[in-house]
């Protein structure tokens, strides 16, 4: 790959929620800004830009990662999944999303997309995750509204339901 020079825009393409997308990015453009500003996928939120709050968490090649600590050019060729890709169909929510709604696991909703992306990946990887493991996973996210109690409930409920109907 040739050197991509500063101050110029370069074509970046990857798969977003299963569909090929492309846009132009300077080397320094953050993946979070690329998703939101170039591709218009504003479901991924930006809260701190130093990797602590977790609001911008997306799945890169199946694992949760901070979009604010990733350059758009690093994502070239990758498989990116964001909150917009969670619902199985328009008008339907995934088991995890539905569980969040049922348990009032969100208030302002700003941190929610990042949390959903982490939990979605984790519950797929570890369908039998314990409460302690889920809590530990969740500690990579800051939520200022809920006090985490309803989020934990929603995560546990989603785990149980996914165990019963893994294809839900």
């Amino acid at each position: 790959m040739p050197r991509l020079s500063a101050g110029q825009r370069h074509r970046v393409s990857f798969s977003l929620n299963g569909r090929p997308v492309a846009g132009e990015a300077e080397p320094r453009l953050l993946l979070s800004d690329f998703l939101r500003g170039v591709l218009g996928a504003t479901g991924t939120h930006v809260g701190c830009e130093h990797g602590v709050c977790g609001a911008c968490t997306v799945q890169i090649d199946g694992v949760p990662a901070r979009a604010c600590l990733t350059l758009a050019v690093q994502a070239e060729g990758a498989d990116i999944r964001t909150v917009e890709g969670l619902a199985p169909a328009p008008g339907r929510l995934s088991v995890l999303q539905e569980s969040f709604r049922e348990h009032h696991a969100l208030q302002c909703g700003f941190c929610t997309p990042g949390i959903l992306m982490s939990l979605d990946a984790f519950l797929r990887q570890r369908p039998d995750a314990s409460e302690a493991e889920l809590r530990y996973m969740l500690s990579g996210h800051l939520c200022r509204c809920t006090g985490y109690v309803p989020i934990m409930r929603a995560a546990l409920a989603a785990r149980d339901r996914l165990r019963e109907e893994p294809n839900a």
Partner: peptide, 12 residues
């Protein structure tokens, strides 16, 4: 809070 410009090389 955005980076200053830099070149990028994806080494193979």
């Amino acid at each position: 809070m955005k980076p200053a410009p830099f070149d990028y090389v994806r080494a193979s």
